[in-house]
Amino acid sequence: MNVRWVALKYIKPGAVLAQRVADGRGRTLLARGIVLTDSLITRLKRVGIRAVCIENASTEDVVVTEMVEEETKIEILSMTYETLAALSSTTSFSYKVKPTFLRSQFGPLLSEIIHQLRQHNGAGEQLGSVYLSDGELFHHSVNVTFYALTLGLQQQMSETDLIDLGIGTLLHDVGKMRIPQHILRKPGRLSHAEYRTVQLHAQFGYDILKDIRDISTKSSLVALQHHERLDGSGYPWGLKAPEIHPFAQLTAVADVYEALTANRVYRQAYLPHEAYDILLADKGTKLSSAVIDAFAQTISIYPIGMSVRLSNGDGAVVIKPSADNRQVPIVRAIENERGEPIRPYELNLATASDIHIVTCES
């Protein structure tokens, strides 16, 4: 597939979609092959789409292998959306989501996701590909789950543990459904009182999940402890390393990375390598060294097809992870700083010390 993920603000009319465009719940908005017009681009911006995948002759040999199949992503997004909505109330549940049967609902789908990840040897080269202007809670939850399961596979967890981990990560932020939206979506800095209110979501989530009979204690502890830190600086209880469940320690790494690389109402997303550097800065003090080592060995932070701008001004596309360092990609430069086509050339950024990525344009 000839692909290039490009932010809508850089898209010009006449670009052809190389992949379908989906809305927040995974439903198709525009099909593959559609030619984008000014009005379509405006409509996509209005519904919060941040980037689209377009055809590009300079990358026609680049093969994107999704770690999780598109249909499976749609199904898990939809199920997570419905479940979080249902669990936001303690008094009523959707007829589609019975509180005592969540494991039986999620289990088969999580098993399929685990199977698909195993087929790719657990290497997370194409994860977290939801491009919205401000990631919705269920999108964040699904992306965290993909990262967490990849890390769990690398650590050779059993199938049962992987499913328990998956349920815990899909529902780890369910407590935020009880936090006022004006606080969660506040564009400016939170007051001390507002921040304390947000912190309550960990306990709220645990209180919701612990009473669901077919969800394990391990899964519930993910909701309670995913903001705890090894040095005791986290919340809600200020636990230290031995007191924090391994599932929560693993989720913390996936949660921090996914949150940093997503756009928020109060800030733009960090570049993937900047977010990774933040993980490394907290390695062994706040975040688990073993989990971060697993992250480094399995997850490529620059997805194939991502558009980037290099420090020399050229626009490029990620074509594969570098064998020298999975967190620094090999790119193909295809345009100059004015957006004009150039003779393509490839560059291994792991060994090109004088050139680096300055921004992502997707």
Rank of each mutant, 00 (worst) to 15 (best):
M1H: 05
V3G: 12
A7C: 06
L8D: 11
A15I: 04
A18G: 15
Q19V: 01
Q19L: 04
R20K: 14
G24F: 00
G24R: 03
R25Q: 07
R25C: 07
L29K: 05
L30T: 14
R32V: 11
G33M: 04
D38S: 11
I41P: 11
R43T: 14
A51G: 13
N56S: 15
A57Q: 07
S58M: 08
T59V: 10
T59P: 12
E60I: 13
V63G: 01
V64W: 05
Y81I: 01
A85W: 03
L87F: 08
S88M: 03
S92Y: 14
S94C: 06
S94Q: 04
Y95H: 09
Y95M: 06
V97R: 11
R103I: 06
P108A: 00
L110P: 13
E112M: 07
E112S: 07
H115E: 11
H120V: 13
G122W: 03
G124C: 07
Y131K: 00
L132I: 07
Y147G: 10
L153M: 05
E159A: 08
I167Q: 02
G168K: 05
T169E: 01
L170K: 09
L171T: 13
D173G: 04
G175E: 06
Q181K: 11
H182E: 15
P187W: 00
R189H: 08
A193M: 06
V198F: 10
Q203S: 07
G205Q: 10
D207S: 12
K210M: 02
D211Y: 00
D211V: 03
I212A: 00
T217Y: 02
K218Y: 02
K218I: 01
L221W: 05
L221S: 06
Q225R: 04
Q225K: 01
H227N: 14
E228N: 08
L230V: 09
L230T: 10
D231E: 08
G232N: 10
S233F: 02
G234Q: 13
Y235R: 11
Y235H: 12
Y235D: 09
P236Q: 07
L239T: 02
K240Q: 10
P242I: 01
H245V: 13
P246R: 01
L250D: 12
A254S: 05
R264H: 15
R267E: 12
L271A: 12
D277E: 15
L279V: 12
A281I: 03
D282F: 12
K283V: 00
A290P: 03
A290E: 15
V291F: 01
I292P: 14
A294V: 09
Q297W: 00
I299P: 13
I299R: 07
I299C: 04
P303I: 04
I304C: 03
I304G: 08
S307L: 02
V308K: 02
L310N: 07
S311Q: 04
V318T: 11
A323M: 03
V328I: 15
P329N: 10
P329L: 03
I334L: 09
I334Y: 15
N336Y: 12
P341D: 06
I342H: 02
P344L: 00
E346D: 15
E346N: 13
L347I: 14
I355W: 00
I355R: 05
I357P: 09
T359W: 04
